Computed example of a mutant assay.
Amino acid sequence: MPNLFVEVHILQSLPPSNVNRDDSGTPKQAVYGGARRARVSSQAWKRAARTEYARQVPEADRATRTKRIASLLTQRLVKPTSEGGPGLTQEQADRLAAALLEPLGITKSAKKDDQSAYLLFFGKKQLDALVTLLGDRATELADLEDDALKSEVKKLPVVQTLSTGHPAEVALFGRMVADLPALNVDASVQVAHALSTHAVRTEFDYYTAVDDENTEDHGAGMIGTVEFNSSTLYRYAVLGVHQLRDNLSDAEQTRDTAVRFIDAFARSMPTGHQNTFAHRTLPHLVLVTLRADQPVNLVSAYEEPVTGVAGLAAESAVRLADELTAVGDTWGNKPLRTLATYGTDGDKITEALGSSLPFPALLEAVDQLVGAWLEGGELTTDAAPEAAAR
């Protein structure tokens, strides 16, 4: 079965903001095309997208990335039988949880006894499945001597339990455990660092706070500065539907997860200094391209910085349309499908990206195309589903 890459290209304008800062509080930056650009790290936007995605699914189906897996497992073990737990005492639950996690190579942090030495990304249902492995033997096992308990736990498929039944978030963003490769999950999503399409300059906001109860003088109660910039960002992510299908082992869930990811990625926003700047916006343009050969990041459209003669967002959209056409003409690997939602007028944009679809219609078209690929294993450049042809 051939591969299918679903790419998401986004142009999004941010007002004065500091959504992702470095260790000194400065908005992250990068030099590209000889010009200093605003940058939002891929890690920051993946976290924002994952958080946005989680809002769309029930609590029980979510994943969590934490050092507190032992505490979470203990909480489940002390739940009374009326709530679906084995009803162990705290001491019994602590011993049994530690024994269950030992095959995973999870050791306690040197600084905090209630935390593991590293973060582990797993599904909440997977943790419940560990409790289910015990059946009605939880109390019996918890009362065993250390060596006997360790011997009995070795007979349980603990590693296999956390290696299957992955929630969508783990299937999307992957998991890497250096000490136990059996737990590794190849990510089906790659996210690029977001870069401004133009050169930026960091500015400083000098602010003061007034002491409401000070009636003796007119001085400030606090004085400070915060750095910021404003930018039109090019954002890019690619979803390997074939890898997502392998991770989930369920065609219908793969189709649903692919659409939910595009929706979450488009609507997500890192939260740095959000109370200070109220910077949350929606994209100016969302372009989805489907390919079978290889992903193509179109950031090269902005190697020469946009100058904004006709507005940064509008000029950036034209550049993106030109680059999509140029890459296809030069290399011969044009997308199988191109779907777009945008608010910019212009024949050049419409010719390259197709007519603008309302965003819900774009998601519907992606749903149909991914579904068709999962059923038939191939998409040609002909016979687009009805929603995609609008």
Rank of each mutant, 00 (worst) to 15 (best):
E91N: 06
P27K: 09
L14N: 01
G84I: 14
I106P: 00
Q12N: 10
G33E: 05
L11E: 00
G25P: 09
F121Q: 11
P15I: 13
T89V: 10
T51E: 13
L88Y: 00
A117C: 04
T107S: 08
S13W: 00
A63K: 00
T74D: 02
Q92I: 04
D94Y: 05
L101M: 11
A44M: 08
A98V: 12
S17L: 02
T107M: 04
L88S: 03
K46G: 07
T66L: 05
L100Q: 11
E91M: 02
T74S: 05
G25E: 10
V31E: 05
S13I: 00
Q29L: 15
Y53H: 07
T66W: 08
T66G: 03
E83R: 09
L14M: 11
K67L: 14
G25L: 08
G105S: 06
K67P: 03
K111S: 07
R50P: 01
V19C: 04
L101A: 04
G33Q: 09
I69E: 00
A60W: 10
R21N: 14
S42G: 15
D23N: 13
E52H: 14
Q56D: 12
E102W: 06
N20V: 13
G84Y: 01
T107H: 06
A54W: 02
K111H: 05
D113Q: 12
P58V: 09
G25W: 07
V78L: 04
R39Q: 11
L11C: 08
A97G: 07
S82F: 00
S116W: 06
R36Y: 03
A110V: 09
A54M: 07
K124W: 11
T51C: 06
K46I: 11
P86V: 03
